[in-house]
């Protein structure tokens, strides 16, 4: 039996995270089978190696927002590193041992008292994956992609982030080759924090730019 999304047969094109079809008795669904078939055919033809897929899954599993948080904390505590990060985001991340497994370049954009940055990919789901891991579903969904570029302040408000009128909002639309990372503002009152303590304040969403970094993040996800 297949697991088509019959329940998604609504007539509009909302690209929200689809609740995934229930898996009955652990049997693979139609698309699961298609993935296995495509992969095995390509391996049979020696176009890709089975071990490459396995290794890339390990790479994907190793990428998480904690990596980006290390980059941000370093930039907050080391002005020379911050300058290098803003000059060439990819090279600065590589300096911290974060390898880029794709051909993308990375531009770090800095939040200040005058500018608030937000990243989006209107066309699809481009995201600084080597540094942050995979994007959340809402980042890939229609409401965020459609609205972030035209009413960013309203979108930010839905995340609880109110940007004062005198602060400029800049929205960066990612592409297949160029990805962005927001360098959030260092929260006030953290002068005595160690780099590690600072990194703990930096969540995924602060580096997308939808929320500010704050000191009361303890226990918040991820």
């Amino acid at each position: 039996m297949t697991h088509r999304h019959e329940d998604d047969a609504h007539d509009h094109d909302h690209d929200h995270a689809h609740p995934h079809a229930e898996i009955s008795e652990g049997r693979p669904g139609y698309y699961d089978i298609m993935e296995t078939a495509v992969r095995e055919l390509l391996i049979d033809k020696k176009l890709i190696g089975a071990d490459e897929i396995r290794r890339q899954i390990e790479v994907l599993d190793s990428r998480m927002p904690a990596l980006g948080a290390r980059v941000v904390a370093r930039a907050w505590t080391d002005p020379a590193f911050r300058a290098r990060l803003l000059a060439d985001g990819r090279a600065a991340c590589e300096e911290l041992g974060i390898s880029f497994y794709d051909d993308t370049s990375l531009i770090a954009v800095e939040n200040t008292d005058k500018v608030h940055n937000l990243i989006v990919c209107t066309l699809c789901s481009c995201y600084p994956r080597p540094v942050l891991g995979l994007p959340p579903d809402w980042y890939k969904a229609r409401p965020y992609r459609a609205r972030a570029v035209v009413e960013p302040r309203a979108v930010l408000a839905e995340f609880g982030t109110i940007i004062p009128d005198e602060v400029e909002v800049r929205v960066h639309d990612s592409t297949a080759m160029v990805r962005y990372l927001v360098l959030p503002k260092r929260p006030a009152g953290t002068g005595h924090f160690s780099e590690e303590e600072l990194a703990a304040l930096v969540t995924r969403d602060t580096m997308i730019g939808v929320v500010p970094a704050t000191v009361d993040v303890a226990g918040a996800a991820p």
Partner: peptide, 11 residues
């Protein structure tokens, strides 16, 4: 990009 759409749901 720029089209009207629903409120963000943080899914």
């Amino acid at each position: 990009g720029g089209l009207p759409a629903d409120p963000i749901q943080r899914v």
